[in-house]
Amino acid sequence: MTTSTTPLVDLLRSRYSVRKFLPTPMSAADIRGVLEDAQTSPSNSNTQPWAVHVVSGAARDAISGGMLRAHEEGRTSSDFTFGYGDGLYASRAQHHGATLYEALGVARSDVEGRNDVVRDNLRFYGAPHAAFLFMPLLGDGVRTAGDIGMYAQTFLLSLTARGFHGIPQTILGMYADVVREVLGVPEELKLLFGISFGTADPAAKVNELRMHRLPMEQSVVFHDEPAWGRG
């Protein structure tokens, strides 16, 4: 029976989402290394459907500015529907929001404070880089989106392994038209979400936040349970 951990297990359990970055850019070699790692991700029939646009500098600033203007004008342009229903998953999302706002010191009644949190999202939490994950709409899109999710996880783990951090942000996908216009991305590619990434700010209290994960037993059902402890 295996009792010791491996570097991969340590890596998996040390990854977390950063919500305050230092402005220091990563080197081109480091970014390329992360992207090459992510390129090894599995996909359905090896279709490798990810189309990834990485922005830094002026391109990053142009997209952030466009999203902020759209937000202030109440304009969104999601390529996919969004919601949690009204049951279990909505409850989990609400708990996540309450935990985050509490960590940020933003009261439920503080409308402007909550709006500032949204703006911070659209500024990439100060990260010097962001990756936008586009996909072709094949069939109903579900399998393709699953492939993009595996790509994103590999991307995030590679960042962590190299001493950097990232955060996947659904909200960035809510301004797909802004991103497409700035980057010249064709309409047939749909924006699923974005990842802000760089170096975590070690002095930011919000980066001490670790979100709760459910016990495995609440997500997994065993059939013909393996004989743990035998052999």
Rank of each mutant, 00 (worst) to 15 (best):
T2V: 12
T3L: 13
T6Q: 10
P7E: 02
V9E: 15
D10H: 12
R15Q: 11
R15N: 07
K20C: 12
L22M: 13
P23Y: 01
T24C: 05
T24P: 05
A29E: 15
D30L: 08
D30R: 03
R32W: 02
L35M: 12
A38R: 00
T40W: 09
T40C: 11
N44K: 10
N44R: 11
N46G: 03
N46K: 11
N46T: 08
P49R: 04
H53S: 12
H53R: 11
V55C: 02
V55G: 00
D61I: 04
D61H: 08
A62M: 08
I63C: 04
S64W: 01
G65Y: 04
M67H: 09
L68K: 03
R69N: 12
A70C: 09
E72F: 09
E73T: 11
E73D: 15
G74Y: 02
G74R: 02
T76M: 11
S77E: 10
S77Q: 10
S78W: 06
T81L: 12
T81G: 14
G85Q: 07
G87H: 12
L88K: 15
Y89A: 07
A90E: 15
S91C: 08
R92I: 14
Q94D: 15
H96T: 13
G97C: 03
A98W: 09
A98F: 09
L100K: 06
L100N: 03
Y101I: 01
S109P: 01
D110M: 06
G113H: 05
G113E: 05
G113W: 02
G113D: 05
N115P: 09
D116S: 12
D116I: 04
Y125I: 00
Y125P: 01
G126R: 00
A130L: 03
A130V: 11
A131G: 03
F132I: 06
L133W: 02
L133E: 04
M135Y: 08
M135V: 11
L138M: 10
G139H: 07
V142R: 15
R143A: 10
R143H: 10
D147A: 05
I148R: 03
M150F: 12
Y151M: 06
F155S: 01
L157I: 00
L157K: 00
L157C: 01
L159A: 05
L159K: 01
A161W: 01
G163P: 10
P168S: 03
G173A: 07
M174S: 13
M174I: 05
A176P: 14
A176C: 12
D177K: 09
D177Q: 12
R180V: 11
V182W: 00
P186G: 07
L191E: 09
L191A: 07
L192Y: 14
S196L: 05
S196T: 09
S196G: 14
A200Q: 02
A200M: 02
D201M: 03
V206Y: 00
L209T: 07
R210D: 07
H212K: 12
R213A: 15
L214E: 14
E217K: 14
V220S: 06
H223G: 03
P226L: 03
W228R: 15
G229P: 13
